[in-house]
Design a protein around this nucleic acid. Structure first.
Lengths: 226, 226
DNA sequence: AAGAATCTTAAGTTACTCTTAAGTACCTCT
DNA sequence: AGAGGTACTTAAGAGTAACTTAAGATTCTT
């Protein structure tokens, strides 16, 4: 799960990241309003954690912006003041949940899970593509009803492919989504090849062909006849 | 047993917690209507203690909400006024029992036990998974009909695993369910390893394999061929 | 208050995944 | 067809996560 944390209190930022990393989420941060706007418009996040009291601007404006652009990214608002007005306004603008500082990190964690649960997969916790099926609850993938053993990265990669089927995904975009933005200092994305290789091997026979190489561009997850 | 106490009288809240903690229940609190709704939607409780005279809203509405969502969580209603109407309405809405303030804590305790006994596992107070059987009222686990000696934490862990079989549970989630929400200040969940270790040792042979490690994620309680 | 049982901390060990690196195969364009 | 770049494959090392033990704290019992 790739999460943007728009929060200017560095200590809070850090402890959130530390905690969420333990659940193997990819976290990126924006310390001010403008950075947040910029990152949201450039990258794809699965969730945004938005402090509405950012020094450089009003978080609610950012929320408006996101929703105006028709993006369906779930947003959880963080606020220092317990004002009911803020809460109501935030939820009216389309925020998915609301947290008041100070909060427990486990609380945050559960809300993230709840939001993701009801948001993304439309109540159905299974994803499938032809003979491939993924039970997200169990984090278990199947090919023709046979379970296949995937590592975390392989699993993430497969989920990312299937939820973005028929789209060409560059190595950079994939890396960005699975590793986060501290990866752009890296000068080679060759390690992607290894994970692709592993995943292909584990998706036996037919299913392996779904991962098509688009030469010089990236990969596309698709059916034979598309 | 994880219990939510929706009660805005702080002193009563505290004495209930103090009392229930002696029975090794995990208690969490909600001091207003909104907090209660939020917590119920996020966390999984084994029981809710609901004061219907919360300042910020009507407890009966909350009860309606819970039952409407099809949740099977047992609810015990607490009320200050002895109005029969409230009582009847509460029980009609699906509350499992009803207490009028002031009440003795021992009274509360026995009602909790009664509700749990008849409520939780479909009238059957036994939980089982293949060769594992648990008699919840005796808090006794068996493997192949042979009783095994578990400590409280080991027992809780096993029950949590079996009632959440086939789901990946992170160390954090497990810790939260077994230790309550004051554990997020902790910066290491390594102690979980120890309890897992003990439980595995006590679930002899085959049964021990049901607790699968999901590397970098957590644990999953499941059968061989899933 | 002492003893027993349980839980937590800590440190050493083992095992797993991810990444790196280097060699090979493939594609495209001239 | 050959050059140059791009993708694939494999194996090994680094780093991290999980496991195991035992001893130090607690908590519970008597």
């Amino acid at each position: 799960m790739k999460i943007l944390i728009a929060e200017d209190e560095i200590t809070l930022q850090e402890s959130i990241i530390k905690f969420l990393n333990r659940d193997a989420h990819i976290c990126e941060t924006a310390s001010d309003y403008y950075e947040a706007i910029s990152k949201v418009s450039i990258y794809e996040y699965d969730l945004i954690l938005l402090d509405i009291n950012l020094i450089t601007g009003n978080g609610l404006d950012l929320l408006k912006l996101i929703k105006k652009e028709g993006k369906k990214i779930p947003v959880i608002i963080i606020s220092a003041n317990n004002s009911l007005d803020d809460k109501v306004e935030g939820l009216d603008l389309g925020a998915d949940d609301y947290l008041t500082k100070p909060f427990h990190l486990t609380e945050l964690n559960s809300r993230i899970k709840a939001v993701m649960r009801r948001g993304k997969y439309d109540g159905d916790s299974n994803i499938s593509f032809n003979e491939i099926k993924i039970k997200t609850d169990a984090m278990q993938a199947y090919v023709n009803e046979k379970p296949i053993q995937l590592t975390k990265k392989e699993y993430d990669l497969l989920v990312y492919f299937i939820t973005n089927k028929n789209r060409v995904l560059s190595k950079e975009v994939i890396a960005e989504h699975l590793w986060g933005d501290n990866i752009d200092t890296v000068d080679s994305f060759d390690f992607i090849y290894v994970h692709i290789n592993h995943l292909r091997k584990k998706l036996t026979d037919v299913a392996a062909n779904y991962i098509r190489t688009v030469y010089r561009i990236g990969y596309k997850f698709m059916d034979e006849d598309m």
